[in-house]
């Protein structure tokens, strides 16, 4: 396991590895999809991975919810990235909804939604 020390892996970096793998899976799916529906789902995978990265980075300072109550904790997570990623979640949802609407319209003519049929 000496290569782990060579790469200077801190716990924060180790926690990000699954998310990076998820992004790679999503990109692979997006670049290799043969139908519209698959690329739509792959985009959602990348979206989720990006949001998770934001949440994990916000949690690197601590994992307590950043709300001031009577009892004080020692380690609060950073509220700034968490507040910002809420917008990105909503935007991702809107993108998915619009893409689904387009897929519904195009699906009337070519129900398989294959790029081979649509790109003519």
């Amino acid at each position: 396991m000496s290569w782990l020390y060579l790469m200077d892996l801190t716990p924060e970096k180790l926690r990000l590895i699954p998310m990076v793998v998820l992004i790679v899976i999503g990109c692979f799916g997006l670049l290799n999809s043969k139908t519209m529906l698959r690329s739509l789902l792959s985009l959602d995978v990348i979206d989720t991975a990006t949001i998770s990265i934001f949440v994990l980075i916000a949690a690197s300072a601590g994992s307590q919810t950043p709300i001031v109550t009577a009892s004080r904790y020692s380690s609060y997570s950073d509220p700034y990235p968490q507040a910002i990623i809420l917008t990105a979640i909503v935007i991702g949802f809107a993108t998915q909804a619009l893409l689904c609407a387009i897929a519904l319209r195009l699906g009337r003519r070519s129900p398989m939604l294959r790029y081979r049929d649509l790109e003519k």
Binding site: I23, L30, M36, S39, L40, L43, I46, D47, T50, I53, F54, I57, P81, A88, G92, T95, L98, L99, I102, A103, L106, L118, E119
Partner: peptide, 22 residues
């Protein structure tokens, strides 16, 4: 179909941008 391509390409570009921002 063009607008679908625009939206999926633009959405991916914006996700790449967001990863860079974080």
């Amino acid at each position: 179909f063009n607008s679908f391509q625009y939206l999926i390409g633009g959405g991916l570009a914006m996700l790449i941008y967001l990863i860079g921002v974080v």
